[in-house]
Design a binder for these strands. Structure first.
Lengths: 337, 337
DNA sequence: GTGAAAGCGCTAACAC
DNA sequence: GTGTTAGCGCTTTCAC
């Protein structure tokens, strides 16, 4: 490890060129009131020295950094990760940089309000625009453009929304059209908006079809395969077990398949299965699973696109963009007579 | 986009408290030379106003930011994403914050040297420690601790290394022990170190066993499922096709399975398959695939742990840490007679 | 125990 | 065209 001398500053460049720091600054910012000759020379020296302006200093002095900040609680959460793909794609080839900010301090993070804390850390400084991945945007205030990713309804910022409810309804309508009357539901993690919305769709579709909502058919899952497995077992053990199961996400659906295999139940002969899938690749190798696909990476992509528009001073076509879901029918469902 | 006024500054807090900005600064930094009374009051006002010190300003003035910077070219690359999981886990509950930095400017990014550019942007300012995800660390200079993630051999920094070569050897030795003599290899993306190392292991294992290295058995892949599919087809079409295929990653291995299915070849009766798997979950739903598992998230975790140690002024047990691979034998291989 | 003042590296007036 | 200068929000001596 080489700990060299302290990093280069604009002053070092200026001295090396024999000009003043403001001239260097002008070159850095592509101002046009510099002689071609000087411009050229400064450029050369900058390249030679490998100088880069310090983000910290630039942020402080000027309001233009071309940096987009992404605020996220749990880095590593598959949800966020999938979003990053889309965000990265949207940023690619543009003149923007990206900073994903996350904190290890659970104290500042676990309490609601982490978004606010993070936001004020970056905003008013380093970033020119913000993408927040959080359900609660109510308390957020900022001077720069902000786009929220899948916030809940009280949101006042431009946002991209996922069609959780609609997707669940589509899945249920399909199952119902196949003749299923008793359809089990494995919920997502309690407290998450996505989970509530999917459950809401499940209930609405039943009511719409004039079918009863049997609480015994609703099993509390948590988006994991293991819990999906146990929920399915509970469902199988019912005196009057369901002929179909709708799982609130891909992992739960895989758990259902595991449980069916374990119980010697054949899909789709004995049981029809549909899963909500945020990361279509996740079930890509399980072609026999019907899914409601929702592309999280598309959400990230679109949110970033919206933010960039805002940062460029353009206005949005619509302040809120809903990302559609798509029912991908494969071999895991069969009509019942 | 422009900035309005009104981000809260330390001066606002000072005025609201009727003290000087230096007193507020002392409270912010937990200095002990402030009277309990004042301390308490300032704390309260800070909480009430929802003030947070600006990262930009703090970075500039002091050397201590408690922020770890992660430099990455391609956000969205599954490799990086998996790393983030481990990094996030390592950071969780600590007093450190994390900044993942990535640039959309292909000009600064595509050319070798992006690492250097990014580094100097963050270093000497915002971050106290750096994690770089890049093969080439040779040109990097920095004043703060730096840990490289899977760099190639000319690296001088503390690093975590993956056992690509060793893993490939393990896979090959297993196949060879089963009696396979003609083993196909689907390479990773050309130019990547991981790819080279795995190929190196393939060749070494053959040589070690006194088996010939047949160039026709080495198909150039690119870590995608589609290319894996085509490579496998090429292999099948050989006058003397292989009895086993080792694919340089999970996706290619899935492509091989696709191709085998398409060609009516049964695994493992007609063909044995092993894949190198960076993201064990990726093939989790394909239990019939033997894999060399290497946990990328573990690499991220360990690298972060090392960096934190360094940032705390402690020294490392070893400057370089090798992440082991694990051969997970399942039903995709059979002995040939 | 607290305040005043000097910068950190940079940009943006404003001079010349 | 180019240099000088005044801060951006903060930490840190150094007085009091």
């Amino acid at each position: 490890m080489k700990h060299n001398k302290s990093s280069l500053t604009i002053r070092d460049v200026a001295e090396a060129c024999g000009v003043s720091i403001s001239t260097v600054s002008r070159v850095l910012n592509n101002k046009d009131d510099v002689s071609a000759e000087t411009y050229e020379k400064v450029q050369r020296v900058i390249a030679e020295m490998g100088y880069t302006s310090s983000l910290a200093a630039t942020s402080m002095r000027s309001r233009r950094t071309n940096v987009i900040g992404v605020l996220v609680v749990d880095l590593g959460d598959p949800f966020s990760l999938e979003l990053f793909k889309g965000i990265g794609k949207a940023i690619y080839g543009t003149e923007y940089d990206l900073i994903i900010y996350s904190s290890g301090r659970i104290a500042a993070t676990a309490q609601s309000g982490w978004e606010r804390w993070h936001l004020s850390r970056l905003d008013g400084g380093i970033t020119d625009g913000i993408l927040v991945v959080t359900p609660t945007t109510a308390e957020l205030t900022t001077n720069s453009p902000l786009v929220a990713i899948d916030p809940h309804e009280h949101n006042v910022f431009p946002a991209v929304l996922s069609a959780n409810r609609e997707g669940a309804i589509a899945a249920m309508e399909y199952l119902i059209s196949l003749g299923h009357r008793r359809i089990g539901f494995i919920t997502g993690r309690q407290g998450l908006v996505s989970s509530n919305r999917r459950q809401q769709g499940y209930v609405e579709a039943l009511e719409q079809a004039g079918l009863p909502v049997d609480p015994a058919l609703i099993q509390p899952g948590d988006y994991t395969r293991e819990t999906g497995f146990r929920c399915a077992q509970n469902l199988f053990a019912l005196p009057d077990p369901p002929t179909a199961i709708f799982a609130a996400n891909d992992q739960s659906a895989l758990g259902v398949i595991d449980a069916a295999n374990a119980a010697g139940l054949h899909i789709p002969d004995h049981l029809s299965v549909v899963g909500f899938d945020n990361i279509p690749q996740a079930t890509g190798s399980v072609p026999a699973l019907t899914t409601v696909d929702q592309s999280l990476s598309e959400m990230g992509y679109i949110a970033t696109t919206m933010l960039i528009k805002l940062m460029q001073g353009k206005s949005l076509d619509a302040p809120v963009c809903k990302i559609p879901t798509r029912l991908v029918i494969r071999d895991s469902c069969r009509a019942v007579k």
